[in-house]
Every structure is written in C-alpha cells, then in structure tokens.
Simulated assay, not measured.
Amino acid sequence: MNYLLAFAFFVGIYHVRTADDFDLPDYMHQCDLDSKVFQKCVREEIEKSLPHFTKGIPKLGVASIDPVDLDDILIDGNGLKLKFTNAQLHGLSKMKLSDFEVEFADDNEKFNLALVANLSLTAKYNADGKILILPIKGDGDALIKCKNVEVEIASKLSHVKGDSGEHFKLTVPNYKYKIQSTNFDLKNLFNGNKQLADTTIQFANQNWEQLMDELAPPVIKQIVKTIVKTINKFFSKITINRMVKGYKKSS
C-alpha cells in the first residue's frame, strides 16, 4: 500500500504544472523555425486564432477585448468642449490581420502586425461650443462608427524567465493608424431641435477628419494598450518552445 501511495504521489508531482506551463489551445499549432514557410505558418496561425483570441481564452486567463471599456475622452480647444463618458469600444472581435512580420535576430527580435476592423464607440456625451463654424450644444447618447480602422503595431520582443522556460514579451510598442471614414450620431442635440441637430450632425460627418484628429488619438492609444496587454498575457502562459519549434536563443 505504501508503494502504491508513493507511486501515486510521484505521478501527481510529475503532472503538476506551473502557472506558466500550458499547451497551445487546440486551434493553434506550433511553427517550425527551421522551415522555409515559418513566416507563413505564424501568419496563418494568427489569422486562424484571432476570432478565439479576441473573445477571450479563459483557460489562460486571457480576457475578452470586445467591448473595451474606455477612459473618459475630453476634447477641449478651438472653441469646442466635448466630453465622452461611460465609453465602450465595440468590434475588435471582428478584426482581421492585414500585415504581419516576426524576426528573430540576435540583436533585434521584433513582432509587427497590422489589424483592421470596423469599430464603433458608444458613450454618453456632453457638448458645448462650435464644430468649426457651427454651434453645438447637448448631452445624451453618442454612437460613433468608424469604417476600416487599421492599426499597425511594431514592437520589440524581449524574454522573460518563467518557472517552465522562457516567454516572449512585447516591449516598447510603437504604432500608427488610419481611418477610412467616420459617422457621428449624437442624440438630444439642442434639446431635441431636429432641424438644428440634423444640420450640425451633417456638418460633423462631412468634416469628420478634423474631429477625429482630436478624438482618435486617445482611443487608438487605449486600443493598442489593450491589444499588447492581451498578447502579453497569452505569452506569459505559453513558453517560447511550445510555440516555436527549434528556437534556441537564451536570454
């Protein structure tokens, strides 16, 4: 009996996993670094995994990123004071990979990707002042729809030691973005005066680029922060050698 207990104990110890020792999810597969199609393999795995990844991977503690709760957004200048509160960003779960590059060099490992999606922002707004030449005043529900938002993230790959091996971590990310078009819908402008509201909204939608020069940067910054944080959470659970076959670099 004692021998059986001892055997069971050591089998149990052998199968105990640390907090950073997980297999890849079933829908992901390891890519071979020595293969001529390594870049293609990684790209295909990212494309295949994005729908799962953005909706969250509970087993790995990776939270859903759709919707994203945003910090309050304030535009205050050029005669306009416009504040958005209780803001949420929707649509990241539908984003697609538009470009990708990973490089493993001794002195410069990098991970670059570009993602594109149609995004919408819901919030409560409060506005007072002018949009360029037209007055605007009101408070209520806001819906802002952005078509084909592309965010390019370029990051260094650093290494972190875990209990089970080395992990990647995205560090010093830089980014840029572009937006094809934006449509604003602000309820209860001018206390419900439809004629004034329609004129102002039409003017705002015709001049969306000027408004987005102020509105987009804090939103895009938070999108990038959320994406990088989510990727790093995934990296912290899966060792490099479980993702990349033949990877031998030491930190």
Rank of each mutant, 00 (worst) to 15 (best):
M1G: 13
Y3F: 12
L4Y: 15
F10G: 10
I13W: 10
H15N: 03
V16D: 02
T18N: 01
A19P: 03
F22S: 05
F22P: 06
L24V: 10
P25I: 05
D26S: 15
D26V: 12
D26I: 06
Y27S: 14
H29I: 03
Q30W: 02
V42H: 00
R43I: 03
R43P: 02
R43L: 09
E47S: 14
K48C: 01
F53Q: 04
T54I: 00
K55V: 00
G61Q: 01
I65E: 02
P67D: 05
P67S: 04
L70D: 03
D71L: 06
I73F: 05
L74K: 15
D76M: 04
G79S: 11
L80M: 09
Q88Y: 01
Q88E: 10
H90E: 10
L97G: 07
S98I: 08
S98G: 05
D99C: 04
D99W: 07
E101T: 07
E101G: 06
V102E: 09
F111N: 00
N112Q: 03
L115M: 13
A117G: 10
L119K: 08
L119C: 08
L119S: 09
K124Y: 06
Y125N: 04
N126C: 01
G129N: 05
K130W: 08
I131T: 07
L132V: 13
P135K: 09
D141Y: 08
A142Q: 01
I144Q: 06
N148S: 14
V149S: 09
V151Q: 04
I153M: 02
L157R: 02
S158C: 05
K161D: 14
G162A: 09
L170W: 08
L170T: 04
L170I: 10
T171Q: 07
V172A: 14
N174S: 13
Y177P: 00
Y177A: 11
I179A: 06
Q180P: 05
K187V: 04
K187I: 00
N188P: 02
F190G: 08
N191D: 15
K194D: 08
K194R: 11
L196E: 11
A197W: 11
F203R: 04
F203E: 04
Q206H: 04
N207G: 01
E209G: 05
P217Q: 12
P217G: 10
P218T: 05
I220K: 00
Q222T: 00
Q222P: 00
I231N: 01
K233C: 08
F235K: 11
I238C: 12
T239D: 10
I240N: 06
N241G: 03
G246E: 01
Y247T: 07
Y247C: 08
K248H: 13
K249F: 14
S250N: 12
